[in-house]
């Protein structure tokens, strides 16, 4: 297990008339090497949950353990935690601040108190990993770059810390189709190289169906189910309760099932549906 969460609850503005419960008894074990999607409608607690994973939000009640780091401890080792769990916030390009791309990306590793040389090497590696040319962009202002490039610089700043777990809050929101594809491909690549465990918050059910191993379905601050996409999207009661929309492929498959077509393997990906139908016709 890379991350174990037990009985996690959180209330914003606790003890005031504005108190707002955001999480209620959330429990989950995030496996090392998995690609987990955190899904649910807006306000269901997704962002509050993931911000707990690297202590951007202070634990109020419950337990969280990240590998051997215990967040319930009096003084958890935050520096080591932030080097272990890399967090890419929503619209991270709005958080770029430094005058050059190189300095911006170096901010995280500097906080890890690494030797100067190591920092430089990591910054270069991270910039290249996100698909930008180090020599071309390092001295440029991040503000001159295109939206998609800015987002990649922001991600580079996180992966330069070489986190074992990469957490991203709606990483493709607002991008054009090519930008989306590039970011999803980048996350795949990072998963295979620097950060084997990936947690993404997403409303893009097509992308979740294509890429993720499991989904954690949030509703009203609780986790309703943690399961592979196939077991989530075909669970009618769950989908209704979480007010979620199935990916298009699943909608087509459900419409076929209601017309008497049966499937060996319930499809969630485009090629799965096409393959099932071609095989069926061949029989």
């Amino acid at each position: 297990m890379s991350i174990v969460v037990k009985d996690l609850s959180y209330v914003y503005s606790q003890g005031t008339p504005y108190a707002q419960t955001a999480l209620e008894n959330v429990g989950i074990e995030i496996r090392e090497g998995e690609y987990l999607a955190v899904v649910g409608k807006t306000g269901s607690g997704k962002s509050t949950f993931i911000q707990h994973l690297n202590a951007l939000i202070k634990l109020q009640s419950g337990e969280i353990r990240v590998f051997d780091i215990d967040l319930t401890a009096k003084k958890p080792d935050l520096r080591r935690l932030r080097g272990t769990v890399g967090m890419v916030m929503q619209y991270p390009e709005y958080q770029l601040f430094d005058e050059t791309v190189e300095k911006d990306v170096a901010f995280g590793p500097k906080n890890l108190a690494l030797p100067e040389e190591e920092i430089r090497a990591r910054v270069k590696e991270a910039i290249e990993l996100v698909g930008l040319k180090y020599d071309e962009v390092k001295d440029r202002s991040p503000f001159e770059l295109s939206g998609g490039q800015k987002r990649r610089v922001a991600i580079a700043g996180v992966i330069a810390m070489k986190p074992r777990v990469l957490v991203l809050d709606e990483p493709t929101a607002g991008l054009d189709p090519l930008g989306k594809r590039e970011i999803l491909a980048l996350i795949r690549r990072l998963k295979e190289t620097t950060s084997p465990t990936v947690v993404i918050v997403s409303h893009d059910m097509e992308a979740v169906a294509e890429h993720c191993d499991r989904m954690a379905v949030f509703s009203g601050g609780k986790i309703l189910k943690v399961a592979p996409p196939r077991e989530v999207f075909y669970d009618e009661a769950l989908m209704r309760e979480a007010e979620m929309d199935a990916p298009s492929v699943v909608k087509v498959a459900k419409a076929l099932i209601s017309r008497g077509v049966s499937f060996h393997n319930l499809p969630v990906k485009k090629e799965e549906l096409v393959k099932e139908l071609v095989e069926r016709r061949g029989r």
């Binding site: 298009s248 909608k251 087509v252 419409a255 076929l256 017309r259 077509v261 139908l277 069926r280 016709r281």
Partner: peptide, 13 residues
């Protein structure tokens, strides 16, 4: 949309 596609697939199976 999905319903029309399912309808067309059914006719061709």
């Amino acid at each position: 949309g999905e319903e029309e596609l399912a309808e067309a697939i059914c006719r061709s199976l």
